[in-house]
Amino acid sequence: MTFNSIPTIDVTALVAEDPVGRRDVIDELGRAAREVGFVQIVGHGIDPESFAALEDAAKRFFAQPDDAKMKVYIGNSTNHRGYVPAGEEVFAGATPDHKEAYDLSIDLPADDPDYLGGNPLLGPNQWPDLDGFAEPVSKYYDEVFSLGRVLLRAFAESLGEPSDLFDRHVTTPPAQLRLIHYPHDPSAADRPGIGAHTDYEVFTLLRPTAPGLEVVNAEGTWIDVPYTEDAFVLNIGDLLEIWTNGEFTATSHRVRKVSHERYSFPLFFNVDYNTWVEPLTQFVGAGGPRYDGVRAGDHLFAQTAQSFTYLQRRLASGEITLPDNARPLYSLGREAQRSAPAV
């Protein structure tokens, strides 16, 4: 199916656990996941003051001199946390852009067994020495992650399964929050900045501060995601596409080059690192599954390692290796489905 616009869904009944309107919201989310892969949600219940505090913290962090930000350079970490300078991350087909970012995830203690055992995505965050930063960022992370749990249950029900189908897989997942800054660029041409890609996790909850995001439909036409204040952009990720054998689509998206300053705050909701993800039985027809199974954390690490230059250097030196079943970049999603069958 094709689409020419992004639907908006009010999830108030879902968040409030309203038994009257909840089923309608679940059906709407399921339909959007099948037909578009993207939706804007309002009525999500996230406190506007939490987002304002997050945005203020991000602005103060990115306003620092480069040497201050580089003290928490992501390449200093062993679990992919910290500052991402411009040019560090390269998506398939990307054109150069001036984006910078700060990446964090569930903040585990330094003596966490997985971290000590060398897990490439779990462990403590690399917090900057900046007053009033960690607290609002952590608060926002916790609030949006809780919203993600509610939405994950809704997606389970939209698939005809019990609401707790995925709950056991969400204990300490590598669910990343990114603080992204696109500086003012008066010379920017209206062309792709971040190249077309899908997200590697279960789904994404994004709060931008300005327009610029585009998604591709089944005909290959790029559709603007309109900026709506106080709305989250929700999009399906690779793992839900695999779990549903392609019934839910990880729609490819990109960010246009825009001249105005822009901030973007995606939380990539994920399941636990060792969760085995393969097509659910009810979606596998006579032809068998369209996707091989993947370990959730291995898939995320493999895609990340192929798109960050500091990890590419570690791969080249033999310091790290890709998982045995690593998929190439950009092998899932609507664009990939248009060009070749999934494997």
Rank of each mutant, 00 (worst) to 15 (best):
L108R: 13
Y227R: 04
T249L: 11
P19F: 04
V215R: 06
E335A: 15
A156I: 06
E161N: 13
E241H: 01
L322D: 06
D199L: 08
D298C: 09
S187Y: 14
P109I: 07
G285T: 10
A210L: 11
P65D: 08
F283C: 13
A316R: 11
P128K: 09
L54E: 04
P128I: 10
A16E: 11
L322K: 12
G132E: 03
A16Y: 01
E214W: 12
V150H: 10
G160F: 06
W222R: 11
D103W: 01
N325H: 12
F232L: 14
T209C: 10
E143R: 15
V144E: 09
N245R: 04
G93D: 03
D230S: 12
K99M: 07
L122F: 02
T221S: 14
T304E: 12
F269Q: 03
A250M: 08
A342I: 02
I180T: 11
T8W: 02
V144L: 08
Y102H: 04
G43N: 06
P341V: 12
A296H: 11
D67K: 11
H44N: 02
A316S: 13
S138V: 00
D47A: 14
L205M: 13
L267R: 03
V20M: 02
T204G: 10
P109N: 09
V343A: 15
L234Q: 14
H184T: 05
N325I: 00
Q126A: 15
L54F: 02
V39F: 09
S259C: 09
K59E: 14
F145K: 03
G117Y: 06
Q306N: 11
Y182N: 11
A33G: 09
H253A: 01
S158K: 01
L322C: 07
Y330E: 12
R60K: 10
Y263R: 13
V271G: 00
T95I: 00
L322Y: 06
P174L: 04
T2A: 10
V258P: 05
G21L: 07
